[in-house]
């Protein structure tokens, strides 16, 4: 993809983010932070590429290990972030009507 297409996606996504986040109810701001944490770990994609590439090039071996460490860190975040969000959201209950 060329730079301008990428930039366009980015700018549009910023606007989407702006409106979507303002519509989040303040009561759920903590789960919001936890889940944004989890999804920002999509950076695992980069770590996987580095780890997958193996040692084809000069810096490949080091890059692979850095990638693997990156995979570990991002996985902590992905699993931890989604799980803790799930745990919090399960606590929100409505008043039971009698």
């Amino acid at each position: 993809m060329d730079f301008i297409s990428i930039l366009s996606i980015f700018v549009m996504a910023c606007f989407v983010g702006y409106y979507v986040v303002w519509s989040v109810t303040p009561a759920l701001h903590t789960p919001l932070m936890a889940v944004t944490n989890a999804i920002s770990s999509v950076i695992i994609v980069g770590a996987l590429i580095a780890a997958a590439a193996g040692s084809q090039a000069d810096g490949g071996q080091t890059a692979k290990w850095l990638g693997l460490v990156g995979v570990v860190l991002a996985s902590v975040n992905i699993f931890g972030g989604f799980a803790v969000t799930e745990r919090m959201l399960a606590m929100y209950k409505k008043k039971e009507r009698k």
Partner: peptide
């Protein structure tokens, strides 16, 4: 929760650094 979220942020940051360094070392991939 605040500590946990801060700790998770640090992991995302570190992962970004690692990916960036890996991309610098092995740009072909």
């Amino acid at each position: 929760m605040p500590q946990l979220v801060a700790a998770f942020h640090s992991l995302v940051g570190m992962a970004a650094v690692l990916v960036g360094v890996a991309a610098y070392l092995n740009p072909g991939a």
